[in-house]
Amino acid sequence: MFFGSDNTGPAHPQIMQALAEANTGYATPYGADPLMEEVRTRLREIFEAPEAAVYLVATGTAANCLGLATLCPPTHTVFCSPNAHIHVDECNAPEFYTGGAKLTLVGQEDKITPEALHDAIEGEEVRGVHGPQRGPVSLTQATEFGQTYSVAEVAALCSVARDYGLPVQMDGARFANALVTANCTPAEMTWRAGVDVLSFGGTKNGCMGVEAVVLFDPAKAWEFELRRKRGAQLFSKHRYLSAQMAAYLRDDLWLSNARSANANMARLAEGLRQVPGARFAYEPAVNIAFVTLPRAVLQRLKAEGAVFNVWTGNLDKGDPEEPLLTRFVTDWSLPEAEIDRFLSLLTT
């Protein structure tokens, strides 16, 4: 009963098969392998962006930070949510990769509003040479709390950024999960709404370890290539990254996995709604739910082998009836029987 994170599950068998098939003979290194050309062509088709520059890296942190570094000089600041992964979970890697650019937090929630973004941007460049200059806006889709931006919301935020001449980067570690919820096209969710650079996630959705960076403005390509090399993300045996992403994109496996993960959460959420005392912090939109449950209930679940993350409070000490905010995440591979077993423990 693993609900800790979608990066705890296995890689999809088709990904593993692709890696095994790639592990024969010889292939040109550093991204010049034939599989990479397949990946590049397919992502351009998916995003209806024939000129887009496409690159692969091994981690989401590298994808986000190299993309941002391509857009953000060290004298500038990145505007992001206070709950954004680049702020709370990347150990100052954005500052490191950009050479010192700071982060300016926008609003109080995981979703940024146009009004809050406007105010945050207005708050910078007020000290001339003494303060940070306005830099890119970073959006997380889906957010760390499992919410999603609609196409209209993305477009509205990009419009504010454009009013100030600022580019927009999208952290899409769970882009596939958000896309199937939004029921729109990848192009509509990204460049048509105004996004300049996308981190296209694979690791959390069935890959072993690969993320794509899609630069919709190919003029930024050489800058990214230099930063990727300098940032130690240009793989020599690149075909093993290419093989994963190629298999991930074939026959829309990326969408199929996301639908499965989201469906697993829908099943879990339906059952949790029947539990006395359960309260959702947000309506689950993708494969993440934040739910408050009594400490005693969570302790019993843990004792039965359930894996989850208590977000606020101490699971081991305190009033048994105190509600604790807890995160549950489902992945593509989670068996329905495990979800049902978990829910049965809540009602016994």
Rank of each mutant, 00 (worst) to 15 (best):
G313I: 14
P284K: 05
A219I: 08
V54R: 05
R44N: 03
D6T: 10
A101I: 08
V168P: 04
L298Y: 12
V195R: 00
T185P: 10
F47Q: 03
N262A: 06
N23M: 07
A156F: 12
A62D: 12
Y248M: 02
G107D: 13
P132Q: 05
A258T: 04
V57R: 09
L103C: 10
L166H: 05
L166D: 13
T24G: 00
A285I: 03
E223I: 07
S138N: 14
I112W: 03
P323F: 05
A269H: 07
T185E: 09
H12M: 04
L325G: 13
D196K: 02
L253P: 07
H238A: 14
A152L: 14
T28N: 04
S242Y: 04
V307R: 04
E188T: 12
D33Q: 13
P10C: 00
E321R: 15
A101V: 08
R259H: 03
M16D: 02
Q169I: 00
S236L: 11
W222M: 14
K237G: 00
T41V: 09
G99H: 00
A63I: 13
A246W: 03
P136T: 05
A193K: 04
V106Y: 09
L105H: 09
A247L: 07
E48P: 06
A101R: 13
D252T: 03
L157S: 11
P13K: 10
P34Y: 12
A285N: 13
R273P: 02
M208Q: 08
D319R: 05
D319C: 10
G31F: 08
E322H: 05
A49H: 06
R267I: 01
L43P: 01
G135Y: 12
A258D: 02
F308M: 00
L301G: 02
M36Q: 09
P276M: 14
V129L: 08
Y26A: 12
Y149C: 08
T292D: 05
K102E: 08
E125C: 10
T61R: 14
A269E: 07
A22T: 07
V137E: 02
Q133C: 06
A173S: 15
M245H: 14
